[in-house]
């Protein structure tokens, strides 16, 4: 009997259901493939890059794509492919870490606001709304200006500019869940606020957050590139895609590949995260809940 029971349980494993549904969603699958490739490239960048990303060769500057340099060289004769590969690591790390930070802040703020309601809710929600009313690029620029340019400050800036949407999302979820019967039951069994919130409410309201976070990674990568483009992101010789495109603008008429290839790399990456995110919306059936945003 017990074996049968486990089998049944296994069959209902949400992960399996998810994977099965994903396999049927071609666009989503394409997104997953892109993300997996990105993770692979980011993880093994130091092995994959054909040249050192910072190796300058002045005699070979601004060379068009060729067999020796598949995507050409930049204004310092550095191999563009190697720099894009290294840049993938930067983009991916910044995207994931900053979104994780946003989600964490959002969970805490949204969770507390939704669960306790009243004045706590009013204060926290007002603060979140205040943050949300400003364009995230503006907040990020301000923060970077205060902390000083660099990769760490970009992560921090993006993390602190995007948390409000997750806070609102989780708050909405918790508001609708906290009056449900099973929560009432848990409470009557004597569970503390902390247990109810962390063990029951948040896990049950996490799926729309995961969806939003997936799309958020794409946003964060674009924001990182924008900050890099403005010279406020990773400092040379670190190859951030945005910074590469920024220095490439000077060479638009001389070596357009310097700006085009990092742009394409970013476009594909962002598209991948968005396709995957869109697929998750369908698969997890959170569309209606997402409209709570």
């Amino acid at each position: 009997m017990s074996i049968d029971y486990q089998k049944t349980k296994k069959h209902k494993s949400p992960l399996k259901v998810l994977l099965k549904r994903l396999a049927q969603n071609k666009m989503g699958l394409a997104g997953v493939v892109v993300i997996l490739i990105l993770i692979f490239v980011a993880a093994f960048a130091h092995i994959l890059e054909p040249y050192s990303y910072k190796l300058q060769d002045i005699s070979n500057m601004s060379q068009p794509p060729s067999l020796t340099h598949l995507l050409g060289t930049d204004e310092f004769g550095r191999d563009l492919l190697s720099r894009i590969i290294r840049g993938a690591r930067i983009s991916f790390t910044v995207g994931v870490v900053s979104v994780a930070m946003s989600v964490l802040i959002g969970l805490v703020v949204g969770g507390l606001a939704g669960y306790f309601g009243g004045k706590v809710d009013l204060i926290l929600t007002s603060f979140a709304d205040l943050t949300w009313s400003m364009p995230s690029i503006l907040i990020a620029l301000l923060l970077v200006a205060i902390i000083g340019p660099g990769l760490e400050s970009v992560v921090l800036a993006i993390g602190l500019s995007y948390w409000a949407q997750y806070a609102r999302l989780i708050r909405g979820q918790i508001l609708s869940l906290k009056t449900s019967v099973y929560i009432e039951a848990t409470r009557s069994l004597g569970a503390s606020d902390f247990v109810i919130l962390v063990k029951h409410l948040i896990p049950n309201s996490i799926s729309p957050v995961i969806v939003a976070a997936t799309i958020g990674v794409g946003n964060a990568i674009v924001l990182e590139a924008t900050l890099g483009f403005l010279g406020m992101g990773a400092q040379p010789p670190t190859p951030s895609w945005g910074a590469m495109m920024s220095s490439g603008t000077a060479y638009l008429f001389i070596s357009p590949w310097v700006i085009v290839f990092p742009g394409i790399a970013m476009m594909i990456t962002v598209l991948g995260f968005n396709l995957f995110g869109d697929a998750l919306v369908d698969i997890m059936d959170v569309k209606n809940r997402e409209s709570n945003l």
Binding site: V222, T226, G263, M267, V270
Partner: peptide, 18 residues
């Protein structure tokens, strides 16, 4: 999907400053 397209266009625009 609309959002996806918008994001893709935004990324594309960064690639071609005008």
């Amino acid at each position: 999907m609309k959002k996806t397209l918008k994001m893709a266009i935004m990324a594309g625009l960064l690639a071609l400053p005008i």
